[in-house]
């Protein structure tokens, strides 16, 4: 299968690989996927409590090139957005940006789920109610 140039670029030079201190109250962590499915994504955000703006985002992903690229681009988009803006990131935007073929759409869904999970973790840590998201499309 041929990968798009953008997927290759992110795979070869992934942005924001790393780990944030999950014990800090202003860091939200989302861990989605499962080893048996061949995809595990961990996405973290660091939020400025005063403004609600995401000041840093990091990821680590076990998965194919498209999964790595999806998480890489997600962290790029998260930085500078507010927490509320973050949850509006749609998986189809990632699909379009990376030109993912149909068999790889689940990678983008995973990235969207990881963002939501990270935001909810942050909210929960800060005494806010977790947002109930609709079940995402079948992976």
């Amino acid at each position: 299968m041929a990968y798009s140039e953008k997927v290759i670029r992110h795979y070869q030079n992934p942005q924001n690989v790393g780990t944030l201190d999950k014990s800090k109250s202003n860091v939200g962590t989302g861990l989605v996927g499962a080893p048996e499915c061949g995809d595990v994504m961990r996405l973290q955000i660091e939020v400025d409590d005063a403004t609600g703006v995401i000041t840093d985002a990091k990821f680590k992903t076990f998965g194919c090139g498209s999964a790595i690229a999806s998480s890489s681009i997600a962290t790029e988009w998260l930085k500078g957005k507010t927490v509320d803006q973050a949850i509006t990131i749609d998986n189809m935007t990632i699909v379009e940006e990376l030109h993912l073929p149909p068999v790889k759409i689940h990678c983008s869904v995973l990235a969207e789920d990881a963002i939501k999970a990270a935001v909810n973790d942050y909210r929960q840590k800060n005494g806010l109610e977790e947002i109930k998201f609709e079940e995402s499309v079948v992976h």
């Binding site: 992934p14 690989v17 780990t19 861990l31 989605v32 996927g33 499962a34 080893p35 048996e36 595990v40 994504m41 961990r42 680590k60 992903t61 076990f62 790595i68 789920d113």
Partner: peptide, 20 residues
């Protein structure tokens, strides 16, 4: 780049995690 490798290195039992 692998979260699983990081967990392994930290000695976290991966079977104890509730995977989605």
């Amino acid at each position: 780049m692998s979260p699983l490798w990081e967990m392994f290195k930290e000695g976290i039992d991966m079977n104890s995690i509730e995977w989605a």
